[in-house]
């Protein structure tokens, strides 16, 4: 590739110019609306900037104070733990159930399109509304929707969102319910790349359905699954809306997530500096993890 492009350097120049033009709008917008605001956050994270300071209080540099506070604040540390725990529940579930579901609806059966549509439908319900619906389902009352259902199975009523061990998994279930259809479809599109012949060959070799799944489907989906993995990890680490609308971080901060914590720091307590420091720490942490993960993946 490198050789051939060297040969036609005139063409390459045209290509570079075109690439530059194609990139410009997105790059400019990203610079103005993502990179610049984030750079401001980095600067503010070393200050005590407030959203609306009391008259007479000046913004000043405070060094690493905000960063030190992140590690000394029990709640903020917990918010990081909660966020990763949430991702730990969401990511494998979406990946595994999404793949199984995709295979399940990848059959040439009459009417299967309708079911694909239905499975996808929660995706079009906005998260605020999802939260409202599930608040009713997760009613802690013994005559609540889910509790009544469990009652039929002779399972004792649960307190769901009011139970500090169940609240976070409940939020995860909401997200999985909403998001699974989308990931299912993306995986489904990946399935189309796997050649039918591989399955036929396996059939002749006497492979079971499960073996086919493990040895053909999963490796064939590698690229798709990597994309799903990355996008679900990133999205689930940013969990905010359900917390904001439903639990307000409770009970006992069991659902306080990083983004919710930095929102609260900024908008409720007015501490823009501290809020920025949480954002920067979160960014660095996820960056480091993904770099490490990349390294390990390459060594494999």
């Amino acid at each position: 590739m490198a050789n051939s492009s060297k040969k036609k350097s005139g063409l390459q120049r045209g290509e570079s110019k075109a690439a530059f033009l194609f990139c410009t709008p997105a790059v400019v917008l990203a610079l103005v609306f993502i990179i610049l605001p984030f750079a401001m956050s980095v600067v503010y994270s070393f200050t005590n900037k407030q959203l609306i300071p009391k008259v007479g209080i000046e913004t000043a540099f405070v060094g690493l104070k905000n960063y030190i506070e992140i590690f000394t604040s029990k709640v903020t540390v917990l918010s990081f733990k909660n966020t990763f725990l949430y991702a730990l529940i969401v990511v494998p579930s979406v990946l595994v159930i999404g793949t199984v579901l995709a295979v399940f609806v990848n059959q040439k059966i009459k009417g299967v399109q309708v079911f694909r549509l239905i499975y996808f439908s929660p995706q079009v319900v906005t998260m605020t509304v999802v939260a409202v619906i599930w608040a009713f389902i997760f009613s802690s009352n013994s005559s609540g929707l889910l509790n009544s259902f469990l009652g039929l199975l002779h399972i004792a009523p649960q307190k769901w969102l009011q139970d500090q061990h169940l609240a976070l998994p409940c939020l995860a279930i909401m997200y999985i319910w909403q998001n699974l259809g989308m990931q299912m479809l993306i995986i489904l599109s990946g399935l189309q790349y796997i050649s039918e012949e591989l399955y036929e060959a396996a059939e002749i070799d006497g492979c079971t359905t499960f073996e086919k799944f493990i040895y053909i489907t999963v490796p064939g989906l590698k690229n798709t699954l990597v994309y799903v993995l990355v996008s679900v990890i990133i999205n689930s680490l940013k969990v905010f809306t359900q917390v904001y609308v439903l639990t307000n971080g409770g009970p006992s901060n069991a659902t306080t997530t990083v983004v919710f914590q930095l929102y609260k720091a900024g908008f409720v307590n007015g501490q823009v500096g501290y809020s920025s420091a949480i954002a920067v720490t979160f960014f660095m942490l996820v960056m480091v993890i993904s770099i490490l993960q990349n390294k390990f993946a390459k060594e494999d």
Partner: peptide, 17 residues
Amino acid sequence: ALSIIPTESIIINRFMT
């Protein structure tokens, strides 16, 4: 890298921009 940044964390600065 940019995809990691939560919108909520830069929203005040974005507002100023």
